[in-house]
Every structure is written in C-alpha cells, then in structure tokens.
C-alpha cells in the first residue's frame, strides 16, 4: 500500500479556557480530542456525528484555518501542522473546502462569474485569461451552461448553488476536497443528482474527498471508509461495509437505528435519549456513557482508545462491553 496522502495524528483543539486581560474566561471546550486517521489517495472518507461533535472544527484544522493545540498533520509526507495559519494555508492549497451553505457563501450582490474570478485571484491566479479558461471548464464540469456567470445567487436553485460551490472549489485545482454537509437542506430527489455529480467529478479530476455529514444514508452510499465522531473523538472507524454491516460501537448503532426507515418498527431500535452533553461538561472516561444503554461502572474510569476489532475496523469501546454489543439484540443494521 502506498503512503497515505494525509496523515492526522493525535490532533487536539480546545477553545476558551483562558481569560484575556479584558475578557472573562470562557469555559474550556475540547472540540477535537486525540483524533488520528489516514486519508488515502482517491478515497472518500466520511465523517459523521451529531451537531457539535467537532466536524467543522476538524475541517478547519485540516485547512489550516485554525491552529491545533496538539498533534500533527502530514500532507504528502510533509509536516504542515504547527505553522502559523498564513504559512499553513499556503502549504495546504491542495486541500480545499466546499461550504455547508453555498448560498450563504456567495456574495448576494455579485454575479457568479465575479465570485469565481475573485476566488481564484485570492489564491494567486493573476492571469485573467487563465481564469476565464478555468471558469468555462469547471462550469461545464458541474453541468451548468456558460451563461451562469451572469446570474446572481438568488437566481439559483438549491441544487444549482451546490454546483456553483463545487465549481468554485474545482477552479483552484485541489487534490483533496472537504465537503461540509453537501446535501443538507436538499430534497432526497435532488440530493441524488448532486451526489452523482460529486462521484463523476472525483473520477474526472482524480480527487480525494473528506465528506462531512450527519446524514448516514449519504455517507453510506458515498464513502469507502467512515469515521464516527462523538464529542470530539472518533469512536468507530472502518470500511463502510464493516461499519454499516456490523456496527460495533453503541453510538454507531444508535445513529443507524435513528434513520427513519420505510418500514415502521417500534421494537428493535434502542433509541438514545436526550442530546449530547454540553461540550464544556464532557463526562469522564467514555464521553458517550451518559447516553449509552450498555454503560457499566468502569466506563467512567478511562477514556477508551480506538482498538482493532477486525482488519480495518476499529472502535473505542472496551472489550467487556463489546461482548454485550455483539449479542443477537445488536442486529439493528437493516440498511
């Protein structure tokens, strides 16, 4: 196997905690805690979890928009972490981002063409003719006609806004694209066209994707591997078939069980109750224990680390519990 394109090791990011001279101390939030994973060339890695689990923070760290407190990020064998944001950003031009709400990311007063030009200018593409060439190429690639450069954002449908968001990113010729909730707010019937387009573009431009979503069905159908996050930590990581076929962490099971299925079944799903705890007040030991149907006393004592349960499938849940979760009652995976 070739070396991973991107290597993330023991990444950590906290917010707040120290009060400045003029400001009151903000409560300490551990948004990303000891996160490690590899991203291989050409793959689609999904990152799922409820809102507030740290998905966007992770994206910003990878992009160099935020500076990590700890850990390292290696891109193509080069260490890119620990640098001041400006430097980090330059080194990471291979990594680009598609905004969660492309409508909001477009300037309402600017025609699409201006936005595309400006994005490239900011990234140092000063030759106007080169920009023109790229614009017509990427518009064609996302299936929009050339006259879309004259449109204003409000003249675009939800699906068209996503396409412009993709075009804008493609124009920068990245190798890795971070897609933040690429289908949220779209009808199921429209999601499909956007997802298929993303697949086509990946093949055409030999791209690698990190797909952030809270929608399991999207991740299931798009990704090669999946990382499930809970309160800043990865709790399950593995190939898509493994994670959906035999989910092993109680949280993953609950997530999969919560997707509204076409057949009503009131019995098999063990719903988790409540919301994730406040990020300023994460339970000791396993953060999920306060909502976990299987938690035992020892879960409060130590933070479980990711451990291999089969080749290419790892979970952060101690073996005592794993025996319980592998029982027959665990067959919630009917997707």
């Amino acid at each position: 196997m070739t070396a991973p394109l991107l290597q993330v090791r023991n990444l950590a990011k906290t917010f707040g905690g120290t009060g400045g001279f003029f400001s009151r101390a903000q409560p300490l939030v551990s948004a990303i805690d000891n996160v490690s994973f590899d991203l291989h060339d050409g793959e689609v890695l999904g990152i799922v979890g409820e809102s507030g689990c740290g998905k966007s923070t992770l994206a910003k760290l990878l992009l160099g928009l935020l500076r990590e407190n700890d850990g390292s990020i290696t891109l193509d064998g080069r260490q890119v972490s620990g640098l001041p944001p400006r430097e980090a950003r330059r080194l990471r031009s291979d990594v680009q981002y598609v905004h969660q709400d492309p409508g909001a990311a477009l300037d309402p007063w600017w025609r699409v063409g201006n936005t595309l030009h400006e994005t490239m200018r900011i990234h140092g593409i000063s030759d106007a003719k080169e920009r023109e060439t790229r614009i017509s190429e990427v518009l064609e690639a996302v299936g929009l006609s050339g006259d879309f450069v004259n449109r204003y954002p409000h003249e675009l449908s939800g699906g068209q806004q996503r396409r412009i968001g993709l075009a804008r990113t493609l124009a920068l010729r990245p190798r890795i694209i971070l897609l933040d909730e690429p289908t949220s707010g779209l009808d199921l019937s429209v999601q499909a066209t956007v997802l298929r387009l993303m697949n086509d573009l990946r093949e055409r431009y030999k791209l690698t994707y990190i797909l952030i979503s809270h929608d399991l069905s999207v991740v299931h159908r798009m990704c090669d591997r999946i990382a499930v996050m809970y309160l800043g930590r990865i709790v399950e990581l593995g190939e898509t078939e493994a994670v959906f076929g035999s989910p092993a962490h109680p949280y993953t099971k609950a997530l999969i069980g919560s997707a509204p299925k076409l057949v009503r079944d009131d019995t098999s799903v063990e719903l988790i109750q409540g919301d994730p705890p406040d990020a300023t007040n994460i339970p000791s030991g396993c953060a999920f224990r306060s909502r976990c149907p299987l938690a035992i006393d020892s879960c409060a004592a130590t933070k479980p680390e990711l451990e291999e349960i089969s080749a290419s499938h790892r979970i952060a849940c101690p073996p005592e519990l794993r025996r319980l979760t592998n029982g027959p009652a665990a067959s919630v995976s009917s997707l």
């Binding site: 019937s189 429209v190 499909a192 159908r221």
Partner: peptide
C-alpha cells in the same frame, strides 16, 4: 413511486428524480 424510490432503504445506488 419515484419519490419513494429515492429513499435510501430501497437502493444501494443513489436514486433521484431528474428535472425539477
């Protein structure tokens, strides 16, 4: 029928309804 077919339970592949 087409709307129901978009539901992820029914298909491994991604199904949509072309047009708007």
């Amino acid at each position: 029928e087409r709307l129901i077919a978009c539901h992820p339970d029914l298909s491994e592949t991604i199904v949509g309804i072309p047009g708007q």
